[in-house]
Amino acid sequence: MVEDRTVSGRVFAAVNYTLLAIIALVTVLPFLHVVAGSFTTSAEMAVKKFILFPTVWSFDAYKFIFSTNTIFRAMGVSVGITAFGTLFSMLLTALMAYGLSRRDLDGRRGIMFLVVFTMLFSGGLIPTFLVVRELGMIDSYLALIVPASISAFNLIIMRNFFQNIPEGLEESAKIDGCSDFGILFRIVLPLSMPAIATLSLFYAVTYWNTYLSAILYLNDSLKWPIQVLLRQIVVLASGMDYSSDLDSTVPPPDQTIKMAVIVVATLPILLVYPFLQKHFAKGAMLGSIKG
């Protein structure tokens, strides 16, 4: 489309661009503030409050939080859960989505209905908790992965993506003697890279961000993933909540230290985000619109 050259058109464009720029800025400012704050000294923090770029650089906060292995352990737990969880989820999702994408599968409408229904109605927190407990998963990392292994939403996106792959390809592979598993792994999946990238990102982010399952199912604080630890350091240890239970002689963690922990917990997402960003916008659109 061509740019509107009338006066009103130009005013409109100018206002529009300015507003969007402000919105984008407001969205990222809190992150910048936290990153900047984590790289400066507490003294500097106390003097210059509105920091967006550190004038005095310091790694004290990071030295402090990495002085014990607590953060390393929690990061390790989160990385492990994210890696195994994403792999497991993608495998289950791709298998089920492919089966359901095949028009010659009897009963697929019924199964799809059962899947969609879980998006509208659920047993809720407590019955799910009891099932997980009955399965003996309390205090096991399995509790963070298995009960959340398929997202109905992701499954539907994946199925829709598979359905848009020309059936002729699968047919000719079949005539050439390819089994159903062979078709999925050698033909369909290699053609579905945008969807795979997108959904892997969705799953990975969900696993990385796991908080509720961790506080529900893990009693052992040595098994905590980074999100639970972050919460503990930022809010609870500062004496804000349940203040009576806390020892008031221990000073609350310094602002810069809290900021450093936030940055560490955010970093893995920030690292993969730029590489996958192009894919996911495309992938999410492909699946969602043609539902």
Binding site: L92, T93, L95, M96, Y98, G99, L100, R102, D104, L105, D106, I111, L114, V115, T118, F121, S122, G123, G124, I126, P127, T128, L130, V131, L135, V146, P147, S149, I150, L155, S179, D180, F181, L184
Partner: peptide
């Protein structure tokens, strides 16, 4: 003929039964 397709969707179906439908009955 589609037996392998059913094998493929089986783990997913078990998942939905165990973690979605059993809790619904758990209500």
């Amino acid at each position: 003929r589609n037996k392998w397709l059913y094998v493929m969707i089986l783990p997913g179906i078990l998942y939905f039964i165990a973690f979605k439908y059993v809790p619904m009955f758990g209500l």
